[in-house]
Design a protein around this nucleic acid. Structure first.
Lengths: 152, 152
DNA sequence: AAATATCCGACTTCTTCGGTCCTCATTCAG
DNA sequence: CTGAATGAGGACCGAAGAAGTCGGATATTT
């Protein structure tokens, strides 16, 4: 529950891998897939999607492959997940386009919408470069309790 | 993606409904289900689960039903979702019990674990009573940009 | 021309979610 | 005591979505 899809995971991993190899002009889907042991054809489709949404540049032919379209610092986890999995909403009824199909009972939705916004905000604040920089950039001891949330 | 299950939604709705009717000693699953137009038998199982985890008290027999086991302020959305859907992790590999089945490539996981913690924190900060109190308790205009996230 | 890539849609397989059905246990009213 | 109402809970099914595969078309370098 409340999980990222594996595709999104794979996409993040691939982008991280690309960010860690800035010297190479392009890496093929197969190379990246082999590096992580994930299905090559599946990753290929993911990378194609990221290309279509402008996060990657692609180059066909021999020695072709993919490269980041912008700086790793400028690509957020939010963009990646959005590109791969489409818009997400924590609640089933979006409460925007067509409202709720249930009785007008969805008073629950307003508080949860704020949760949704919070999650989106967190994901937007994380960039690919945050994932890359090998090892822990953040002191492990401080990994908990460092989140301050202000709800109104 | 990244959605709550309908069961969790239903559970939250039901608890909200119970919180809004503190005078009645017990409400049957059918009553609540009818109020929201959701399948009675499905809701029944959800309520049974919430009973087993101690969030609800149940009473069989005629005029039986369910009632909150503690104050609505003391029940968090987190507990409810956890009870219904089980423990959630934003990443597929928990990195705790059995680690990652992929190559030790999961350097991604540490930052995402913090995202996970953040989400859990937000859900813990929302109580059933927050859902209940009819209308918007929080000024709508302030619904955006009120989240402060400190990442180390 | 051949090898290596991306590109892209169709398809299968697998899991999970949403939902139903049926049975048993408990409690209260008459 | 009996029966209606209710909770408890297992078995099951269909639909939907996720994960992964296949096949072919196009582009690019050698």
């Amino acid at each position: 529950m409340l999980k990222l899809t594996k595709k999104a995971d794979y996409g993040l991993m691939a982008l991280k891998y690309l960010a860690e190899h800035p010297e190479t002009p392009a890496l093929s889907a197969k190379e990246i897939a082999d590096a992580y042991g994930i299905p090559a054809q599946l990753l290929a489709k993911i990378l194609q999607r990221l290309t279509k949404t402008g996060l990657l540049k692609s180059h066909a032919g021999m020695n072709g492959g993919y490269a980041l379209a912008k700086d790793a610092e400028k690509i957020s986890a939010f963009e990646v997940i959005l590109s791969i999995d489409g818009p997400f909403f924590i609640t089933s009824c979006t409460k925007g386009a067509h409202g709720c199909d249930l009785t007008p009972s969805c008073t629950i939705k307003e508080p949860l919408a704020r949760v949704n916004d919070t999650i989106a905000g967190v994901l937007k604040s994380i960039s690919i470069s945050d994932l890359a920089e090998d090892g822990q950039t953040v002191p492990k001891a401080a990994a908990h309790g460092l989140v301050t949330l202000t709800l109104s």
